[in-house]
Design a protein around this nucleic acid. Structure first.
Lengths: 334, 334
DNA sequence: TTGTAGGCGTTATCAA
DNA sequence: TTGATAACGCCTACAA
């Protein structure tokens, strides 16, 4: 693997001339040909480390997500990766396994790698490193969850409205004992989905049994055990909303293990579960987030900032529309 | 964000002294305290670009996979990421969307980023960049598929044996018209799984209708349309093996759309489909690859090489055992 | 133990 | 248009 110096020796041109060609391309035709020949003969490859040391830029974007194994996260980042790659950027994907201290470590890593910008599905903790990005004018785009006190462009759905719609449907069909399994209390998305649940009850004038409200850690396993608890302890429960797809799979397993039938014994609705909801029997009611649009918009916002857009960050997040697919898992009671 | 130079100014010590502290830590107690104070006050962060320019190392590993959205790929890389992180390495994850030319571009990117090693689920094309890694003694570990002519450590399952086991079970239950949907013909894994299918027939002395053999591109959509074709064109088909989980979901959808029942109208088995096979009704027969062990072993092999192990690469890949879970989707015909 | 100085591969300034 | 030269931040002999 050759360096610019090697090219310069081979061609007899000065190092700086070769460098200029590599960047602007403005160079005498004859030399241009020589350089191009040398480039391929000597197998030149730019040393990104040197380049980024010099320019303090890396043409690389950091992507930080809670869970590499989540289908939802994966769908979004693969879209973002595609858009950014198209624009000439490269991408470093990191997972922080829902651990805020690991999140902070990865942010530091990305900072040290001098990424030009960041796309994050944040844990909710406001890390100092994020402020650093801001201070250094490296744009940050938040996906799925806002971060209070940080003015970053944010793309998400209206979580409150979505769960209100689901729970509203339950209530309308006559359900009065509705369980909810949501994410951890300290995660914005989880809180908002619960808020929608509470609000729907309030609007319908239905009182709430707080024993039906359970927090969970998004995992299949936790969804399984919490759902099992609910099924055993709350015999009167006729409907259940699960606020994440791994937990949903767990709940489904619990329901089957306990030999409950959907929807006869229990009505079920779940967030996400993209490809699977249609294939299960009965087909499962879901809130379908527009993952591709979320990814595309996130990438677009970041690219605009990278291109120099310094307009103030809108005070409200960008809200995309999630679709409630009712399908066959909700029983009419009245 | 401060540099070593700033620290040196702040403490009055020489730049090299600070650098030495940062690397070895051997420095007079008094100075040590001063440096540590400066480090936190000035918010020092190493410039990885400069470091990696100097050392020609990056303490970073590249991970390259065909599909960021694949659950199988995701499970493996998240394990690998965990192990490598534990060992002090950082990780850059890239997807090449099953496109060999994109694969080559990402390899070049990783090369330019000076990653110290590579974990790849390769497309099958032997790219020049891989040779470069080899020449520069940057270890490469292959996952899921070998690459002919390249001696890299490789971790995979015995694909031939696995599909032989499945098809053998079909045959034993009396099935004689067995369809197979495998991956693209140019992908090793797909060819081997087909080979197992053919071999099982041969051993059982059952002749093959090549109309039952279909190649596919691993995607849900292709699985759907190919399965539909098979169901329509091959009315006598009583069993179907699908060699990848996205295709399996597609096949499942096709089966439902055509109102076939499993296993009464058609027996079905599928590779992977980790979390879902147990939840579907009937529970689906699968070949379960030991994704965690694959990831763990891949990481271990790479770390050994990085630590200086120069023992010759074994001529045979490391083969891990996949488990055939029969469950309830295979009908006994005889 | 600490300091001086050179160089890693690029880019960028300024003369020629 | 081209070329000599000085950074960028860090590491590492070698010298003090």
């Amino acid at each position: 693997m050759a360096t610019i110096k090697d090219i310069s020796k081979y061609t007899g041109l000065a190092l700086s001339t070769v460098s200029k060609y590599l960047n602007n391309g403005v160079v005498r035709e004859k030399n241009k040909r020589k350089i191009e020949e040398a480039l391929s003969v000597l197998d030149y490859r730019p040393n990104e480390a040197a380049r980024s040391l010099k320019t303090n830029k890396s043409m690389t974007i950091g992507i930080l997500i809670p869970n590499l194994r989540s289908a939802f996260d994966a769908a979004i980042i693969s879209m973002i990766e595609e858009e950014l790659t198209r624009a000439g950027y490269s991408v470093i994907i990191c997972g922080y396994r829902k651990d805020p201290s690991l999140e902070s470590a990865k942010l530091r890593f990305l900072l040290n790698k001098r990424v030009d910008g960041l796309v994050v599905i944040p844990s909710g903790v406001v890390h100092e490193e994020l402020r650093t990005f801001q201070k250094e004018n490296r744009p940050v785009v938040l996906i799925d969850r806002p971060l209070s006190g940080m003015d970053f462009d944010t793309v998400m759905i209206d979580n409150v409205a979505s769960s209100m719609e689901v729970v509203g449907a339950f209530l309308e069909e006559g359900h009065r004992s509705i369980g909810i399994i949501t994410g951890p209390e300290d995660v914005y998305t989880a809180r908002m989905r619960l808020k929608g649940y509470l609000e729907a009850h309030k609007r319908a004038g239905v009182s709430i049994d707080y024993g039906l409200v359970r927090y969970c850690d998004w995992s299949l396993e936790s969804g399984y055990s919490i759902a099992k608890e609910l099924l055993m302890e709350k015999r009167g429960m006729t409907a259940l909303i699960v606020c994440g797809d791994d937990m949903g799979l767990g709940a489904l397993k619990a329901i089957q293990d306990e030999s409950f039938r959907i929807p006869d014994d229990i009505s079920l609705a779940c967030f996400d579960l993209l490809q699977i909801a249609e294939i299960l029997r009965p087909r499962l009611a879901t809130v379908e987030q527009p993952v591709l649009e979320i990814g595309r918009l996130g990438a677009k916002l970041l690219l605009e900032r990278l291109a120099g857009d310094t307009s103030p960050v809108p005070s409200a997040p960008h809200i995309l529309k999630a679709v409630f697919n009712r399908r066959d898992s909700i029983l009419r009671l009245n």
